[in-house]
Design a protein around this nucleic acid. Structure first.
Lengths: 221, 221
DNA sequence: AAAAATATTTAGATTTGCCTAAAAATAAAT
DNA sequence: ATTTATTTTTAGGCAAATCTAAATATTTTT
């Protein structure tokens, strides 16, 4: 039996390992989970006992295959529930994280498979993050940050780097939703802010911070 | 803050109080929750400290208004999730209890109101049990047990007394689902089993045990 | 009304998950 | 290569929720 707390640690370790490609440090986990390194140490011992992580004292941790599977399944559940909350219940994309955080821990045979079918097997969640399939596999998308887009290039918004509700609300208000088409008109040297055209019509200015948190796929047309 | 364990105790007390109309005993709670009387005693002290129950040592407990509200809201959530699982995800009525038991504890603003709307404000769950509305109110139905039906009377199946999956599966297999029309042809004195006609066509025999667990509304036509 | 049976509570432990403070190991800086 | 700083672990405690065993109330039986 894996407790909810244990599940949350595995997910956190997975998410950190996704970005950095070395063993995950106790501290990094503590920061992400908003707890103390001491508590993390405690939990790492337990997870190691259950063979969900490979743990060498003072050397950080890596997920075992078993641990990776648990984490991936959790991410799958989380993202499917987010789709449900947005598509079926009408929540906005900035409201669903905390609910999905709870729903992902609901256990039961065939629940997630049925939910997946009910939602018509979505490949991405409301934030553009890919949803692992029943085997834990997901597609990789060649998306780049708006901050890496060259002047003159056009792209479609496909996701966000930051998931804070403040950022998500701002984007929604500006009409910067998934699928929106942007053309980079100009990058201002002074502060790295940009001037973009949306859907070939409206022009708007976006700060460097926004650019560093917005993913696009370049239109090859 | 009310923990999940506390919520479950409140619900159990509510359910026992529904049937017996006296103070609920420690033992009855222990039996329903499949735990020891000692654990129940412990929890009753905590619930009493939070003014969710009125508790006199050795004299049993009653829910306070606050406790009743929590219990009712839980029942509302449980039954709405059951409707979702059956109507939207295609589970059968004998599979949904344990899942709803987990889902009912998910907390978040407007979740249940949105779910209710999505399901089109159902008044009954898949077992025929009434769903409290947002104010905690529900309609009372004048249903009687098949064991109390008189020979010659006709009725529509509206609910079950027992909720075990064995019983629910048996009923489904026999076609004895909600809405089915039964006419009591004969009650056998020897073992109180009955002969009934279903939808004016098929005849079948039902044991006393089945009769004591099947609710019907008499057709006034 | 006293004895026996049953129900309930208290006492003492255990597990999980967290905390703070102190100790130990590793990394960085001089 | 020491010293300093940072990171990580250990030690000791705490609260929630459970358990078993023992003590205490209440109810039932005689």
């Amino acid at each position: 039996m894996i407790s909810q707390a244990e599940e949350n640690y595995l997910k956190a370790i997975f998410k950190i390992a996704e970005k950095e490609n070395r063993a995950v440090s106790t501290n990094a986990i503590a920061v992400l989970m908003q707890t103390t390194p001491a508590s993390v140490s405690d939990m790492l011992r337990r997870l190691s006992d259950k063979n969900l992580i490979a743990y060498e004292k003072y050397r950080g941790v890596q997920l075992t295959e078993a641990g990776k599977q648990v984490a991936t399944e959790l991410i799958r559940r989380h993202r499917l529930w987010e789709v449900f909350l947005v598509e079926k219940l009408g929540f906005s994309w900035d409201e669903v994280h905390d609910l999905a955080e709870q729903l992902e821990h609901v256990q039961g045979p065939s629940l997630i498979e049925r939910l997946d079918a009910f939602l018509d097997y979505p490949r991405y969640d409301p934030h553009g993050d890919p949803i692992p399939d029943a085997d834990g596999l997901w597609v990789f998308r060649a998306q780049i940050l708006l901050s890496d887009l060259k002047t003159g290039q056009r792209g479609v918004i496909t996701g966000v780097q930051e998931h804070s509700s403040a950022f998500l609300q701002y984007l929604a208000q500006m009409g910067l939703t998934l699928g929106a088409v942007l053309e980079l008109l100009e990058r201002i040297d002074y502060d790295q802010s940009v001037r973009v055209r949306m859907y070939d019509t409206r022009e708007l200015m976006l700060s460097e911070k926004v650019c560093k948190n917005l993913f696009l796929m370049i239109e090859n047309a």
